[in-house]
Amino acid sequence: MRRGLRIARVLLSTQYALMLEYRAEIALWSLSGVVPLLMLGLWSQSEAGQALGLGATGLSRYFLAAFVVRQFTVVWVIHAFEEDALQGRLSPLLLQPLQPLWRYVAAHLAEQLTRLPFLAAIVAVVMLVHPQAAWWPSPRALLLTALFTWLGFAVNFLLQTSITMLCFWSERASALDRLLFFPYLALSGLLAPLEAFPPGVRSLALATPFAYQVAIPARLLAGEPVAIGPALAVLGAWLALLLPLCLILWRAGVRRYGAMGA
């Protein structure tokens, strides 16, 4: 237990130092997340947006919350891992007495930490432009948002890692990442609030991991009603499915891995 804590602390602090080196890059990443704010412009202007019954404040809060939440559920493990596997950098990591995937988890968490100041700056700008959208979520909402954002990140990480494991079999597995991206765009709630979906699509979205990346935590943060029990059940089911799948693929993949040039 103590050893685990020490490893976690060292991994996180080294990865944080590494990410700070790339802060300009991470600022750009935060900027590339502004899509929900563009969509807020569209929805607040459109006839369809007014027909949703959320009101101007409701829409602003939802999309601002979606922008914030999304910064903490983004996963890019496939690109980092593909490069490491192709260039043979994975080999020394395999020799260490630590499951190498933890290193990527730590990198993601450290990167989220680095994003915080940029995130705060963008939110502050939006608040200045749209003062009527400002709100302070209740402690309960904040706690639930944190819990669901973290669970959403965990499911997304496992989903992406399962696909990442295909790097052991194909040299261009990152192309597969795009196949996950399109259903994510359509169903996550990043581009449209769940209220806008036809009922059938809404239930489909709630059964996939995608709605839990953006829509559900954003609703919690914006103070909209969420059915907590069913949401936890779906997330639990995905975790129970993806965690073993990930580990099985990892074992099979490592057995196949011959390092580069072998």
Partner: peptide, 11 residues
């Protein structure tokens, strides 16, 4: 298509 339900128009 979400913007065009119920005969709505977009901009």
């Amino acid at each position: 298509s979400l913007f065009f339900g119920d005969g709505h128009r977009l901009g």
